[in-house]
């Protein structure tokens, strides 16, 4: 679980080019969008692609997607339950 959290944070930093951040700067339960990491619509699409490419998870249901992107913890939980890669 912790390994996946670290891996995911590193992939997010890389995909979104968050050059000034380290995995330790991303809180596990903080919201990913707006007040948390401050990500926007472009970043959301990047994260969807990240989920698809790395874990074989295709997010197309908005209600489900919003739950997944609630926090790092929510993402990790969803990846563990649904990954195909």
């Amino acid at each position: 679980m912790e390994d996946l959290k670290l891996e995911l944070k590193e992939k997010i930093i890389d995909a979104l080019n968050l050059v000034d951040m380290t995995p330790a700067d991303i809180e596990d339960d903080a919201p990913i969008f707006m007040e948390g990491l401050g990500l926007d619509s472009i970043d959301a699409l990047e994260l969807m692609l990240l989920m698809e490419k790395n874990y074989g998870i295709r997010l197309s249901n908005p209600a489900e997607g919003k739950q997944v992107f609630k926090s790092i913890n929510a993402m990790v939980e969803y990846i563990n339950a649904n990954r195909t890669k």
């Binding site: 969008f33 619509s41 969807m48 698809e52 295709r58 997010l59 197309s60 249901n61 908005p62 997607g65």
Partner: peptide, 13 residues
């Protein structure tokens, strides 16, 4: 909002 991004993502996939 953010909903359309999921539809867009699915369309491109």
């Amino acid at each position: 909002g953010l909903d359309w991004l999921f539809t867009l993502n699915a369309a491109l996939s």
